[in-house]
Amino acid sequence: MLVKNLPIDENIIATLTELGNVGVGKATNSLSKMLGFTLNIDIPDVTLANIDDIKNNLNFSKLNAVGVSVPFENDIQGTLFFILEQDFAAEIIRSLVDDEYSGEMFNFNEEISSLIQEIANMMAASYLSAISKYTDMRVFTSSQTLYLNNPDVLLTYQIKELPDDEHTICVSSKFSATNNGKNFDGYVLFLPKDQSIEKIMKILGIE
């Protein structure tokens, strides 16, 4: 399978899996530090897929969720996409700003919208710090965008923004938390542009 001239072989998948693993590990550490409860991560899944494949793999269709996209650029370019299940977002809001928050997703005030975006921003920055450490690259984030919708819609919109919208490399990681006896899930999607993957592999000596 090819993305332009980039073969997706086992070495590339293993490298992206490791970068994703360290990235989401650092990102969830940041979130855990803010929330005061532990988060667990699953091993990332690296796919070269179109939008339908990604949606099917992640099985988002039944979720009610909030999503935040964080574009990044400079030495590498792409987008990090964060998805929090509705209950997870509500738990974060209760933990940090309003302990009586009802869980109503589509009635965010400015402070709550800002909180969710800031959390995504911090997680994105932590994720990219891990990649920077491995590659000696400088990566800056741009202003994030908050989406309150079904993740299928969010993802379709997001991936359509990418230049290689037919097939794209997606490093997806699931993370979860347990608090007050309840389980919550969230997802991080790392969607680098093809030329950025080539650059990362070259720096890491993966031919």
Binding site: S30, A125, S126, L128, K133, R138, T141
Partner: peptide, 12 residues
Amino acid sequence: NSAIGQDLIIAD
């Protein structure tokens, strides 16, 4: 005061 905690950017 930023979430971007990359060593290279901090040094810059």
